[in-house]
Design a protein around this nucleic acid. Structure first.
Lengths: 229, 229
DNA sequence: TGACTTGGTGTTCGATGGACACTATGTTGG
DNA sequence: CCAACATAGTGTCCATCGAACACCAAGTCA
């Protein structure tokens, strides 16, 4: 069955930039393409938007289908619609930005027929379409947003050490932070729950574990509090 | 002539939220619809994206066509694609956010057949489609961005007084600012050129005029300077 | 010329951000 | 068991910034 319109229409897709943090490395999820164009090339996961689903739903569905992933944070990033960006014709893509806890997703490397894999964001293969530009935009967004919203926690396991948290910020912001100042600041916000547990299986003094208190954050946010680091 | 595709496609439009500042009131440009659906209702200017133009181009074209306006600042805002947002069927719209100097655009009220007019953003008529939501998103964006990027100047005439500038910020941020602190801060950035001119036609002491120095801002920006108010 | 209207100007104080170094605790290997 | 190692954890000082705050100056108008 085919569909006919009075005027030509661009095709509409979603593409997702999914970030994960892997022990000192910021990773992005890529899919090896199984179809033309760019067969065999790596690309962002994504696909066509269906008529009955919202854009957000489309993005979630594609991630689930192509990589078995359900991100803990997802937001719309930007819409890319340059006429020449897809060799098949006019394709406009709504890009999404997502964060996952890699601890939840290490297993599923390739659920679908296509290969899915995590790459260091600083060292990706050449990407299909304009996906390198989309990735760049997503990195900018991550860098800009991580300081004003507590989204960094979505990249860590539920229980984490302050050093892990600091490393995360250092990696994303691409600069070193002072340990004492960092701890002072983050603890003074009163958003971290100090647990009665410490790291396991480390060959040195174990660090205390903390948990991010989502509830408390929502409360403080309503009261006009602004996260800032 | 008609166009046929194997799979159904949403229609793609752009819609523009254009802000202007009118002596103590923040205005938004609206168009009275001449066609179904929502004939006679007010809506954001916008229309269908053509196959050979980029999204940005489409937004600029529609503004030019429907209101004879060429904004001094324009950026993509957000893409709205809920399946039910347009009664004609699936229509996805890429919303844009634009600022104009009303001093340049007071004349053209209705270039096209349709009526175009400026409304106070705090007191608009009921809008067609989900345009009220889009306007709300644009207002949030304006509020958030005006503090970190010198876009407020795009709403003022090229020469302005410090009081005008302060009023602008007060209106957008919806709070009063301290005169001395405001002036200290903005002047210390060294982005305003103090002119040898004063206001005309006021029935009290005339205020000095200033001009925003775009060149200097670009330089400072490259050097790592961050505008913040 | 006096009343009115808006323009224009500095200081103080508390809070915040950045620089900076040492002791504590647990592990490992000889 | 103890010495070496690795990372955890902690406080002070100073410069800067933001917030609060009030009066004189200049021009207009009746």
């Amino acid at each position: 069955m085919s569909h006919t319109y009075e005027y030509p229409r661009p095709a509409l897709t979603v593409d997702c930039v999914v970030f994960g943090m892997d022990e000192g490395d910021l990773k992005v999820l890529l899919i090896q393409r199984g179809l033309e164009p760019f067969v065999g090339k790596w690309a962002l996961p994504g696909g066509f938007v269906r008529m009955e689903e919202s854009l957000d739903e489309a993005a979630r569905r594609e991630l689930e289908e192509e990589a078995g992933i359900r991100p803990s944070h997802m937001e719309q990033l930007y819409t890319f619609g340059e006429p020449g960006r897809d060799p098949r014709g006019r394709v406009v893509t709504v890009a999404y930005f997502a964060l996952v806890k890699l601890s939840d997703h290490r297993v599923h490397a390739s659920t679908d027929a296509r290969e899915a894999a995590w790459f260091s964001v600083w060292d990706t293969p050449k990407l299909a379409f304009d996906h390198a530009e989309i990735l760049g935009t997503a990195l900018q967004r991550l860098k800009g947003k991580v300081r004003y919203q507590p989204i960094g926690f979505e990249l860590l396991p539920p229980k984490f050490t302050l050093t892990q948290l600091q490393r995360l910020y250092e990696i994303i912001l691409e600069r070193t932070l002072d340990k004492r100042n960092f701890r002072k600041k983050i603890l003074s916000m009163d958003l971290l729950e100090e647990l009665d547990e410490v790291e396991q299986d480390v060959s040195h003094r174990a660090a205390r574990l903390y948990r991010f208190d989502h509830k408390k954050y929502k409360q403080l946010e309503k009261a006009g509090f602004n996260f800032e680091l």
